[in-house]
Every structure is written in structure tokens, then in C-alpha cells.
């Protein structure tokens, strides 16, 4: 009975999660503007979406900001993680706690606090809200994810490896690039991907720090939802959903394939 109950609840929750998305997808193919009447199949909203300059510019802005901020965050964060890892426990704990702030703080507080800072910048210099403020803000909330994904890799790393390399004639720089960097690379990469995702998805922090001239995609989406009826949003959601679904399915297949291969190798090595 217990099992039936938990199965029912699980099915309801999954239906609850997907019904709104399915509705968006179905209505993205609607011939009319209505959000309640399906009057016929058409690709009209997709066409309109690709001819919508505001959306396309915002998409480009989002991608530029995400790539620049994630790259810079990765460089700063990787260096930071390596340095932090070598610190005394107390200093390390203090820095890690402050690093944790942007992750746990409500986004609205990160947003308004940075806004206050940038506004102070505008008073004392000719700093303006726009690309630069957005990139600075995105780097700020991205670095912690990078640090937190690299620190475990550094901890798992065998400390003797660097010493061995140095004994065998590597100088500190060579040991760093030939040993440390390759060892932590998986952490660096997953941190970078996380940063890109958070950056593309961010609305709240960007909303407070974009000023009036630059819009990212989530900000454009927000202004479209305020107009109540914008069927292009449905088309956009459908595209995003399908792209993400494809990425996740490919990743899943690859990891299953890897798992199976590893298992096979393991079995053949034992026989």
C-alpha cells in the first residue's frame, strides 16, 4: 500500500512538473495568438522569433556575457582554489565561508548589494551600468562555483606527485602545468560549465545591474511576460527545452556507454 501511495505521488509530481511545459510546447505551434484555443498548426511564432531583433540581440548579449564572465571566473577561481588549498585551516575556513556567501545569499540581496556598489562607482567615476557591470556581477556569483568544484579535486590529488616531478627535474612552473593543472582539470571544466549555465539562466542579479541599455535574454523574457500575450515566448521555451533535452540525453548515453565499457574492461581484466 505504501508503494502504491508513493508511486501515485511521484506520478502526480512528475505530471505537475511537465504539464505546464507541454502546454507551452503545444501552443508554440498554434496558428493564432490565443493561449487557450488551439486553432491549427503553424510555425509562425518560430519565424517571428527569429525575426525579433530584441530577442536576438539579447541572446547574443547573454552568450557574450556568459562566456567572458565564466572564462574570467574560471581563471580567478582556479588560481584561488590552488592558493586556498595551501592555507592554514583557519584562514582557509574564513575564506571558504565568505566564498559561500554568494551561493547561499538570496539572489535579490546579491543583486541590490552589487547595485549599491556600482552606483557608488558611477558617483565617483564615469562608470556606467551595462556590459561591464553585468560581467563583474556574473564573475562574482560564478567564482564560488568554480572554487567549490576544484577544491575536492585538489584534496584528492596525491601531494607526492608534485614533489616527484620536482625531484625528476621539473621546476615549480613545469610541475604546476604538467601535474597540478591536468589533475584538477575535470573540476575546472565542470566548474566552467556550471558557471556558463548559471550565467545564462540568471535573471535577478542581472535585472538589478543591467542599467537601461543592455538586456540579457532573461530580462527580455521578463518584459515579454509583462505584456501577457507573447506567443514567441512559447516558441523560445520549446527550443530551449529541446536543446537541453538533447544535451542531457547525449550525456546520459555517453556516461552509460562509459559505465558499460568500464564494466567490460573490469570483467575482462579479471578473467
Amino acid at each position: 500500500m505504501n508503494k502504491i501511495l508513493s508511486r501515485t505521488i511521484t506520478s502526480i509530481v512528475i505530471a505537475f512538473l511537465y504539464i505546464p511545459i507541454l502546454v507551452l510546447i503545444v501552443f508554440s505551434f498554434n496558428a493564432s495568438k490565443s493561449r487557450a484555443n488551439f486553432t491549427g498548426f503553424s510555425l509562425r511564432w518560430y519565424e517571428k522569433l527569429f525575426h525579433n531583433d530584441a530577442i536576438m540581440t539579447a541572446l547574443l548579449n547573454t552568450i557574450i556575457i556568459a562566456i567572458i564572465s565564466s572564462l574570467l571566473a574560471t581563471v580567478i577561481g582556479t588560481a584561488a582554489a590552488i592558493g586556498i588549498n595551501k592555507m592554514k585551516p583557519i584562514t582557509k575556513a574564513t575564506i571558504m565561508n565568505v566564498t559561500y556567501i554568494p551561493i547561499i545569499n538570496p539572489e535579490i540581496i546579491t543583486g541590490v548589494s552589487l547595485m549599491l556598489l556600482f552606483r557608488a562607482f558611477t558617483v565617483y567615476s564615469n562608470f556606467e551600468f551595462g556590459f561591464v557591470s553585468l560581467i563583474l556581477a556574473h564573475i562574482t556569483f560564478n567564482i564560488p562555483y568554480i572554487i567549490y568544484s576544484i577544491i575536492p579535486k585538489l584534496r584528492q590529488m596525491n601531494p607526492n606527485l608534485v614533489e616527484a616531478a620536482e625531484d625528476l627535474g621539473c621546476n615549480a612552473r613545469q610541475a604546476f602545468f604538467k601535474i597540478t593543472i591536468p589533475e584538477i582539470m575535470p573540476g575546472v571544466l565542470s566548474g566552467f560549465l556550471m558557471a556558463i549555465t548559471y550565467s545564462i539562466d540568471d535573471f535577478i542579479v542581472s535585472y538589478f545591474n543591467s542599467g537601461t541599455t543592455v538586456e540579457t535574454l532573461p530580462i527580455t523574457i521578463y518584459s515579454m511576460t509583462r505584456k501577457k500575450v507573447s506567443p514567441e515566448i512559447n516558441a523560445l521555451s520549446t527550443i530551449i527545452f529541446i536543446v537541453i533535452l538533447a544535451i542531457l540525453i547525449i550525456r546520459n548515453i555517453l556516461s552509460n556507454y562509459k559505465l558499460r565499457k568500464e564494466k567490460q574492461e573490469y570483467l575482462t581484466s579479471r578473467s
Binding site: P20, I21, V23, L24, F27, R35, A36, T197, D201, F203, L217, P218, I221, Y222, T225, K228, I233, L236, S237, I240, F241, I244, L248
Partner: peptide, 13 residues
């Protein structure tokens, strides 16, 4: 993975 604005918009519909 879908922006929360879009998900919330879906509920408006």
C-alpha cells in the same frame, strides 16, 4: 534547466 520566468509564465497560461 528552463528559465524560471518561462516556467512561471506557463502557469499563467
Amino acid at each position: 534547466w528552463i528559465n524560471f520566468l518561462l516556467r512561471t509564465y506557463a502557469w499563467m497560461t
